[in-house]
Design a protein around this nucleic acid. Structure first.
Length: 137
DNA sequence: GCCAACGTTGGC
DNA sequence: GCCAACGTTGGC
C-alpha cells in the first residue's frame, strides 16, 4: 500500500472544494509532467494521499483516497497524460505547514522539501506516520 | 543528440 | 513581485 501527496493551489482547487465534491470525488486532471504521470499510473484504488496547499497556506490540510485508477485526461489535447479520481477522506485536525516539515528531521527526505515543483509525489510509510502524528490525526 | 532559450512553478 | 529550479522546445 503506497502513500502519496497531491499539490494544489487553493485558488485553483482547494481542500474545501474537494470536501464539497463528497463521495463522488473528482478527477485530478491537469498533470503535465512525466514523473507525476508515473506516480498517477502507479496508484491503486484505496490508496491514500495528503492534500497540500501550495503558494497560499503551504500546508498539508487533509487526506484523500484514490477511487478510480489512471485513465486518459480529456483536457490533454496531446493524449499523453491521464489522471485518477480522488475523494476527500478527512481533514488533518492541525494542518502541517511546510515550515514544520522542514523543521522535522524525520521528514528531511520528503520530496516536498527537495523537489518542490513535483505536483504528485510518493510519500514513504514513515513520512506518512510522522505527518499524521504532527497533524494530530 | 546537445544545449541555449524560454515558460512555468512555487517559495520567499 | 522576484527569481531559482526545473522541464520543454527547437535550432543546429
Amino acid at each position: 500500500m503506497a502513500y502519496w501527496l497531491y499539490k494544489s493551489e487553493p485558488d485553483v482547487w482547494s481542500w474545501q472544494q474537494q470536501v464539497e465534491a463528497g463521495e463522488a470525488g473528482t478527477h485530478w486532471n491537469g498533470v503535465r509532467n512525466h514523473v507525476a504521470k508515473q506516480n498517477l499510473m502507479a496508484m491503486k484504488i484505496g490508496e491514500r494521499g495528503f492534500f497540500y496547499h501550495s503558494n497560499k497556506g503551504k500546508e498539508i490540510v487533509g487526506i484523500v483516497e484514490v477511487i478510480r485508477e489512471y485513465y486518459p485526461d480529456h483536457t490533454d489535447a496531446s493524449g499523453k497524460f491521464g489522471m485518477v479520481d480522488v475523494k476527500a477522506v478527512s481533514p488533518l485536525p492541525r494542518p502541517v505547514t511546510l515550515d514544520a516539515i522542514k523543521a522535522e528531521p524525520r521528514l528531511a527526505q520528503m520530496i516536498l522539501v527537495n523537489n518542490s515543483r513535483l505536483s504528485v509525489q510518493p510519500v514513504t510509510e514513515e513520512e506518512w506516520r510522522v505527518v499524521l502524528e504532527m497533524g494530530g490525526a
